[in-house]
Structures are given as C-alpha cells and as structure tokens.
Design a protein around this nucleic acid. Structure first.
Lengths: 211, 211
DNA sequence: AAATTTCTACTGGTTTCCCGGTATATTTAT
DNA sequence: ATAAATATACCGGGAAACCAGTAGAAATTT
C-alpha cells in the first residue's frame, strides 16, 4: 500500500506515546520519522521550512487547541495530511477536526497495523478513520439529536436572514410584513432555542445544522 | 460482507436512477428494496410505521432540502442509516450532511460494486464514503482555508463569550476591563470578518471553526 | 532601539434589540 | 367541527448594539 517514502511528524505531549510510535514506525521502511514534538509552536516552525507528508496530531495538548494547530498547519502547508489522534470519542469532535482540515481521525486505541494502513490511505490523498471512529460517526448520539426544536417554515426563513446579518426592519421589508411580526418570530426563535440573544441563537442553530 | 437481510429505501427525483438502483439491487439477495420515493414527505410517512435499515438519500431534490430530510429521518428512526447520494462534490456539503446525521456520503459516479460494499459497511454501523468522496475530503479547498482572518488571543476570547450569549457589560465584568474596551474588540471582530453585525459574525466564525 | 501590533479606554449619538404583555385571522390537525 | 398551531400585528420602555472617530499604554516583532 505504501509507496515511496513518507515523511511523518508527530505531536503528542506524552513522551511514552512518542516513544511507542517511533518504535512502531521504525519497522516500516517506507515511513521516515522526521520530527516529534510535544508542543504546537515548534512543529509549526518546523513545517515552515521542512516537508512533512503526514502529521499525527494529538488534539488534546495541555494549554493548546488542537484545532487551531491543525488549521495553521493546513494554512502553512496544505499538502500535509493531518491525522487527528485522540482519546475524544465524540462525533462532534471528529466533525470539528474535519472542518479544520484534518484528513482523518484516529482513536488512540488503534492497532499498530491499522495505524500503518491509515497512514497509507492518507498518503494516497484519501479520508481515513480508525474503525472505532467510524463506529462513532455512524451513531449520531441521541443527545445531539434531542433538544432540537421544531421550527416553522417562517421561523427557518427568518432565522436564515438573521444569520445573514439582516436587521429586523430589513427582513420585514424583504418579506413584506410588519417589523413587529418579524420581531415576534425572532423572539419565538430565541425562546425555542432557550438562548438569551441572537448571538447565542446563531451559535446553537449553526451547531444543530439550521444554518 | 452483507449479513442477514437489509431493508433498503431510496429517495431520488430521477425515475431513471430509481430504476437503475432497483435493477442493481435485484441481483443482491441480502438486500430488499422496501420503498422508492421521489419526494421527502412520503418517505417520512413510510418510516414512521415501517422498518428501514438503510436509506439512500438524494440530497438535491427540487424544492426540498436533503439535510432537513436526513435530520427528520434520524429523529423519527435513529437506527436507520442514511447514506447521502449526490452529485455535489464539495467538502462543505459532505460535512454538513454528516452534521445532520448521515452515516456516509456517496457520489453518484459510484461503481455498482462499490455501492454494495458501502451499504454493507453502513449496515455494520460504520461510517462509509465512496472513493471519490474520500478524495474530496482529503483536499481541503484553499478557498475554505483562505480569507480566514487572524484573530488575537483577546479577540478569540471575546468572540467565544459573545457566542455564549454574553452581553458587552457582562464580558467586561468577567474579564475585568471596561465595557468600552470590549466594545472595541467586538467592533474589530465585526470588521475583520467583514460582516454587518454579531449575528453574521457568529455565523461565519462558526463556519470557519472559531466557535 | 524603533516600528508595529495589540490592548486598553474614551465621547456622543442613532438604531436595533430585548422584554413584558396582548390579540386576531388563518392554517393545520384531531 | 373543534382544537391547536401558526402567522400576523400592536404598545411601551429600558438595555444593548452599532457607528465614527480618537488615543495612550503595553506587548511583540524587526
């Protein structure tokens, strides 16, 4: 599966994990470990001047944000494929990492053989997941789907325009109704989502896929 | 790969596609086609009273929103695995469908054999993609990653609290600074994202992964 | 050391939002 | 047919957001 030589880098704050991965990779001639890092900043420095094909990125570094690092990596070096490596077994976390440009998500309980297979897939420019991650993705948690309010057609319409940045008077004009009507809908939206204002409304509505 | 009997339903507005899929599935004894639909509403009625294991859902139905249908299906019948079937070859579209509870994404140029393999994977409760979709997901478009403003630490902090629904005075108190300072940061955020107000700010910031 | 960026803070004014209510047609569902 | 949900609209008032500026202190970068 692996072709040519893969330059691999790893970021993880646990030295043991770095050790283990290094030993593991040593057995695979097609993979060259070009760098191991325990923090984000040195990694970002490294990729500015060196080629890294695949990055295994622990996204739960203390005091840092794995997503930010991922985004920055892709900004500096778009051809680097980032594989998130994490204990976080939550659907929303996986989706967020993908949104930040990750090309795959591996749970830390991954088997060595599976890891190599995933690296190979990533090298070929393919999305890849560990099996456990695939299982999580196929099981939308009931928490995620619960508590999602039912919106009427009109409410969805108005929600959309609010998210676009239109004010109440502007929306009213657009829909040919009274601003007071639009305001009522807006208030109903805020109530249905149980949030204090539009800012929070847009946040939760976006999270729940309404926008 | 396929075990037992899979109850499959399809939604697609092109009769030809329905025909073709039906023919294709007829060759696979483990899959039973329990329903074909050209609109969302009849499908939703059907799943309210009948078991469907896997749903192939065309997400570009005229006058309907595939995401809404997907979300509704998962609400009514969480055990139904929804495979999005589409021509839309965009990363953001795929992510949105996953966010709405889909368990996989297949591009319409999928090979018959691959389709059956994907159905089998979905049946096992695993996330699944057609190969073309995997390729798209591994190539975050530069457009997506470009045009993303650089935010300072303070701005990120304030953005976060705005999204939580806090008002300017509340944030000021929390951070022990003047409300006027918070307002300045807020205005800088609105300017950096080139949006008219906080509602739009939260929308684009959420889309770009800041929230 | 100098330049740039970031964080801080202000004045004064307009618009919009948000809250407490109430209320009547029109659909939609039972 | 009757009940429930939806879309429409209003009043009054206080709080917050938004606009157009200016500007010094602190931290960072060059």
């Amino acid at each position: 599966m692996l072709t040519g030589n893969v330059k691999l880098a790893i970021v993880d704050d646990h030295p043991i994990v770095l050790e283990g991965l290094q030993r593991l990779i040593a057995h695979v001639p097609e993979i060259t470990m070009v760098g191991t890092f325990t923090e984000g900043a040195p990694l970002l420095d490294y990729i500015r001047t060196n080629q890294v094909d695949i990055l295994l990125l622990d996204i739960s570094l203390p005091g840092e944000n794995g997503m930010e690092i991922c985004k920055e990596v892709k900004r500096i070096s778009p051809q680097t494929q980032v594989l998130a490596l994490s204990n976080h077994a939550e659907r929303s976390m996986i989706l967020q990492m993908l949104q930040h440009g990750a090309t795959g998500y591996l749970l830390k309980n991954i088997a060595p053989g599976e890891l190599v297979a995933c690296i190979a897939e990533a090298q070929q420019g393919l999305l890849t997941f560990s099996k456990a991650a695939k299982e999580i993705m196929a099981r939308p948690s009931s928490v995620e789907l619960k508590g999602i309010p039912q919106l009427t057609k009109r409410e969805k319409e108005i929600l959309h325009w609010i998210a676009e940045g239109r004010t109440t008077p502007q929306i009213a004009e657009q829909l040919n109704v009274s601003p007071l009507t639009v305001e009522t809908h807006r208030r109903n939206l805020i109530q249905k989502f149980a949030v204090p204002n539009v800012a929070a409304l847009i946040k939760v509505a976006a999270q729940q896929g309404f926008i």
